[in-house]
Design a protein around this nucleic acid. Structure first.
Lengths: 219, 219
DNA sequence: GTGTAAATATTACGCCGTAAACTTCACGTT
DNA sequence: AACGTGAAGTTTACGGCGTAATATTTACAC
């Protein structure tokens, strides 16, 4: 009897916030964002769903922690010499995170960044203020940068209107009446060749180029 | 007896896709995005939840139709003389829709635009191609515009890290250790004065200014 | 060993989306 | 006027959800 009992006790690594988060992210990426339920996550951990509540206050708390974990790379950004480069790195890293874990980003990508990772925000604002921007202007630039990056990443992980991956999306467009949709339907093939990396950089570069520098040009 | 029976039959306006959508949006704005369930929507319509299935195939279909309804103003955009102005109008209208119905936008704002409103997309692409852009470049410019606008709008309706509305958000920031967060905590008061309208325009103008025009400058 | 606190399991409740079967009603045909 | 028909709404039912409350097990200090 002792051998059968050990099934759900011994030889089972104990639950940890970290392990829960890793398994949760793996589960989401494997089965989709809607597959994350307390019970199914518990099952993936070899445990009953309620056991998770000893490590997280509830589903909301769990989602917040998942977001935190996912966005950790933003904590490791190094300061560069130019504020535009810092904005560029911030935006690019945010999108990379999304592309690497698209299902997870779909699930948690709308949470306010400030409730999840305040430090990277503070650092970027600090860079901008040091570069000579008024704090209020620095905040506006930060918002513009993160809005573009997150908006692009969300669109990418939920599926572009015209998806470079082609597949059913392209066929759906080509099935439209070409007289009503001369570009979307008539040029669908060309459109599908747009590289998502290139498009992201094009918009980001335009945004940063278009932003005016601080008034007192020197430090 | 005929009088009591009439309660759930006569004198009750019949269900319509249109009426369901209007009541759904009102319900969402009044009670929050998580309040939209088939049963509660039915109750708000004076009907059992299952009745809705005679007008929509299911929850997904309903959400799609809500998005369509919400984004209808994008259909009414007039063509302007300059492609930058068209992009500007598109982005601004998208954000206005979000600001006017923030809870609804939170619920449906991540759906791919092309599955909901293809016409405005086609028109904007058409404008850009007419202005001399290659279709592929037109698509990149469209993506950049909508990514920024939607990303900004989503951030706005889910709550900025630093919220101009002040309230608990500002207090939360001021409670941070000012040595660790010199800008976010130390300048929280100044930051809270950033007008969301102004910040949106600042980023949008920068983005459009930074985009290069079509190679052959003339038509 | 035994007591104690933490981790996990069990049970239960109300809400969710929706499939299926049933009832009611409006209306065109005869 | 009677009736068939199809659409609209209701009722019932099922499995899954988040989580509160309670019970059980485990690991460890003494």
């Amino acid at each position: 009897m002792s051998s059968s009992r050990s099934d759900h006790t011994a030889n089972r690594r104990p639950l940890t916030r970290e392990r829960i988060l890793d398994v949760a992210i793996a589960l989401i990426e494997h089965d989709g964002p809607e597959a994350l339920s307390m019970r199914r996550l518990g099952a993936a951990l070899g445990v009953e769903g309620m056991a998770i509540y000893h490590h997280f206050a509830g589903r909301e708390d769990l989602l917040g922690a998942i977001a935190e974990r996912l966005l950790e790379p933003l904590d490791d950004l190094e300061q560069r010499s130019d504020w535009r480069e810092d904005c560029h790195d911030f935006a690019t890293t945010l999108r990379e995170v999304a592309v690497q874990r698209p299902a997870t980003f779909r699930l948690v990508g709308m949470q306010p960044l400030g409730e999840v990772l305040l430090l990277p925000v503070e650092r970027l604002l600090g860079t901008l203020v040091e570069a000579g921007f008024e704090p209020v202007t620095a905040l506006a630039i930060y918002r513009a940068t993160i809005s573009y990056a997150r908006g692009y990443a969300l669109a990418e992980v939920t599926g572009f209107t015209v998806d470079a991956a082609g597949g059913s999306g392209l066929e759906r467009l080509q099935a439209l009446r070409p007289d009503a949709f001369p570009v979307l339907a008539g040029r669908a093939g060309e459109l599908a060749e747009l590289d998502p990396d290139r498009a992201f950089r094009l918009g980001l570069d335009a945004l940063l180029r278009g932003l005016e520098g601080p008034e007192g040009a020197a430090r």
